[in-house]
């Protein structure tokens, strides 16, 4: 019997599956609208701003800043025993992505606006895009 707690699976779908394949290659891609200069997340069939179809997929720069955070003090998911932290990241490509912060945490009060960069960590039998603090540019945006 597998004693590891079941990892919450990602939502699947035609576009999600393509996104997760790129994550497995450590180069996360999203549909990107060249007219609006924005990545579309979650991936969608057309740009929600200009409704252009056939969006090219582009690898993310992996850079962004923390828009908000929360620390769970209660366990909801067996794979995530409390305490643990979730962050919302405003990607430089314009989309917002929910993820986790790995490694060093910012000082209290210095989370929001802190620059971060994407990393890939094994979790539940797949790679998961997470973030670490980007100290090359720590000035809050």
């Amino acid at each position: 019997m597998n004693s590891k707690p079941e990892f919450p699976p990602p939502v699947g779908g035609l576009l999600e599956d393509r996104m997760w394949r790129s994550v497995s290659l450590r180069a996360m891609e999203l549909p990107y609208c060249p007219d609006c200069s924005r990545a579309v997340y979650p991936p969608a069939p057309c740009c929600p701003h200009c409704l252009r179809f056939e969006l090219p997929w582009r690898a993310l720069s992996g850079r962004g800043r923390i828009l908000s955070w929360t620390r769970f003090h209660r366990t909801y998911l067996p794979a995530y025993p409390a305490p643990y932290t979730v962050i919302a990241v405003a990607l430089d490509e314009g989309a917002v992505m929910i993820s986790n912060l790995s490694g060093t945490e910012p000082a209290p009060g210095a989370w929001i606006g802190h620059r971060v960069r994407m990393c890939y960590e094994p979790a539940g039998g797949r790679l998961l895009p997470r973030f670490v603090l980007d100290d090359r540019d720590s000035a809050p945006a």
């Binding site: 955070w69 979730v86 993820s99 989370w111």
Partner: peptide
């Protein structure tokens, strides 16, 4: 959608809102 990163429960969504609002 964000369960692979441990984000679940409407309360957690409002916690994210609260920290952003407080900031």
């Amino acid at each position: 959608y964000h369960a692979p990163w441990g984000l679940t429960s409407q309360g957690a969504l409002y916690a994210l809102t609260a920290n952003a609002y407080m900031h």
